[in-house]
Each structure stands twice: as C-alpha cells, then as structure tokens.
Design a protein around this nucleic acid. Structure first.
Lengths: 94, 94
DNA sequence: TTACTATATTTATATATTACGATATTCAGA
DNA sequence: TCTGAATATCGTAATATATAAATATAGTAA
C-alpha cells in the first residue's frame, strides 16, 4: 500500500509547517511579515524585544523549514513568507 | 501598554493550538475526527498502527489543550473536535 | 464476585527545543 | 584596509516532548 506511506508523508509535511508556526515568536514574525512584506531583522527586533541571537535563530528555523526566504539588501536582509500553507494558516487564524 | 501583553496572550493561545496539531499522529487524529465525528479509540488505533499507550497519550494532550472532548459510551469513549481554530486549520490544510 | 474489554496513567529513557551570551561573518563607507 | 552595523552561528544549560512497556481504572456481562 503505497497510499498509506504517501498519506503519512503528507501529514508529516503539514505537521512540519504547523510546528514551524507553533511558537509565539515565530507566529508573530510570520504574521508581521504578511502585514509588512519584506521587513528586515532590526525592525522585527524592535517589535519583539528579544535578544538578537534568539530572533536570528527563529528566523533560521523558519528559513530552513522553507517558510521564509531572505533577500540581502546591502547590510540588511529582508524576509518574505514563501510557504503557501503557512500563509493560509495565518490568514485563517487572524 | 496592556495591549502588548494582550497581543502576546493571543499569540500564545494560537501557538498552543498549532503546537497541538504539529505532530503527524495528532494531526491525523484530528483530521480523522472531523471526517468521522465521534470516532472511538479502538477505531483510531486500527488506522494508526501505534501502541495503545502512545495513542492514548496523544489523545490526552489534545484533550488537555482543549482541542478534543471525549464522551463515554459504555466501555468506549467517543471523541469530538471542539476547538474552532483547530477545525479551521485542518479545513484549510486539507 | 470474576473476568474481560476499552481506555488512561505511570515510569523510564531518548530525543528535541528553547534561550542567550560569545563569537563569527558580511557588507558599506571612510 | 580598518571600522561599525546588521545578521548568523556556536556552545551549552534548562526544559519540553515522544515513545512504549507496565500498570491501573472503569464499565459490562457472566
């Protein structure tokens, strides 16, 4: 039964997106990026009031899971939400 | 600014629901319960092929987080999805 | 009662996540 | 090339999560 394996893969993929969003800070980041496309890290930091390394690690996780993509602009990096499921979830919740 | 605190509380509450759903087995349980209202545990178990205690613990987590509610029917317990955000998320994803 | 079935809880262990200071990297401008 | 700003990565301690065997509980029926 290949179907069962495939079903499991789908569930795992969806669960991965949910996990990526399942932390208040990351949820806040993604929601923020949907409101203000291409926000940079410093701007996020001033909103979130957490240490820079903590924020950067959350961004790294979102990047590695394919939720966000960063675009360098000089010394700054602008982030965008690229995962469609993540966008849908956030739109649904807020 | 009370609003910032309140915003954080909302983010935490939403993140909690996402976390509840962010495991493939739990996502499968909740999706299954939305298709077949009030499924009982044995039925779920035959689908999921995991040990009984593992399944029961996932159910406990979903119950404790207010995602599900169980209703005893004799020796069986039927589960229902009661959290609206969880329902919306699953509908959105599948 | 006793025995059986369905489900929950406990316990132990392995694994993953989170947080954050310290340090490194990357780029722009002097 | 040196400096400073923006961002990433490393090291590590604290905490949380996942798994499953063993045990407990609740209900039904003989």
């Amino acid at each position: 039964m290949e179907n069962i394996t495939k079903e499991m893969e789908i569930l795992e993929a969806k669960a991965k997106v949910l996990k990526a969003l399942s932390h208040p800070i990351r949820l806040c980041i993604v929601r923020g990026l949907m409101e203000e496309e291409g926000c940079n890290v410093s701007k996020m930091q001033s909103c979130l009031e957490i240490p820079q390394s903590t924020l950067s690690q959350h961004l790294a996780k979102l990047r590695n899971l394919g939720i966000l993509e960063g675009e360098r602009n000089g010394v700054e990096i602008n982030y965008y939400v690229i995962d469609e499921d993540a966008k849908k979830i956030v739109k649904t919740l807020f």
